[in-house]
Design a protein around this nucleic acid. Structure first.
Lengths: 156, 156
DNA sequence: ATAATTGCAAAGTCTTTGCAGTTTG
DNA sequence: CAAACTGCAAAGACTTTGCAATTAT
């Protein structure tokens, strides 16, 4: 491996600075955690916990504020999963999420799948869909087998 | 007008009883408010406030619990709008919501529009999409005109 | 009667905010 | 140095829960 994910870390931080943001120890830690969690759909809260493992004095409120700032800088994006949880990603990994109402499993889907829908909504409703911003809800393959009768388990 | 919406009220209440739920003054008031609000996408909180106008002693927690119960009975359904708000409907008015990230406007779309997507996700991902359960996010016609530069206003 | 439903108060979760002190560029 | 950033504590919005009293069937 060349530099592993630390290349990507450097890249993201460079972008932050480039956009006028400052680089602090705290931010480095947060972005690193975000990078680690990249496939795992972290909430702000979870991210805070993880960051605090190595840096016990980074406050949760700072994580929230940092995520906001990074969002404004265009480096981070969030998606609302059904239940209310909001998960964060770096913007270079855009995709759509399918959340299973029954077991909570998350499936990633390339955005291209939504192109036809984007077109219909644009043409018929003058609405510019941003599919990644909200996760779609339904029942996954596993649960579809067992869960044929009732709607869901602990769905909210 | 024949019986106006009170026919529908009766119908819903009958369904509740039929499914084993009990009819109380409180429930009657809540269902009525839900019926009134039918097009307006009420949150549990807002619903509570409205119910309390005529029935000051109906507690918010009761509204939450009642919505849960009615959901289990299949009479009520909820949708997660992006920001985190959860809105409730009677199940006889199913449709999809488009929420504008910029102004918050809600557009209703017939579910049929999603049929092709439902098929793709079923065939390629073995995922049974339930499109109504989560509102889609994007930018509405009005805002698309003015809001060309930045992503959104108070988007969360 | 008895099981469901409700009011109330209290707690829980997630998130935001004000402020004063610290750090980055 | 000035502006950005952070820790901390406190508050805020929304929702859930335990319990005893009430009510529908």
């Amino acid at each position: 491996m060349p530099g592993g994910s630390s290349d990507r870390l450097r890249g993201v931080l460079a972008l932050v600075r480039e956009k006028g943001g400052r680089i602090t120890t705290t931010r480095r830690a947060i972005v690193a955690a975000l990078l680690d969690a990249d496939d795992h759909h972290v909430t702000a809260q979870l991210l805070a916990e993880r960051v605090q493992v190595g840096n016990p004095d980074i406050h949760a409120s700072t994580v929230y504020r940092t995520l906001d700032t990074l969002t404004e800088l265009g480096v981070v994006e969030h998606t609302h999963l059904g239940h209310g949880a909001t998960v964060y990603h770096l913007t270079d990994r855009r995709h759509q999420h399918l959340v299973c109402e029954s077991c909570g499993a998350i499936t990633e889907v390339p955005l291209a799948v939504f192109d036809p829908l984007v077109e219909v909504l644009r043409d018929s409703y003058a609405f510019r869909l941003r599919p990644e911003h909200v996760a779609l809800s339904g029942v996954c393959a596993n649960c579809a087998g067992s869960d044929l009768d009732r709607g869901a388990q602990d769905e909210q």
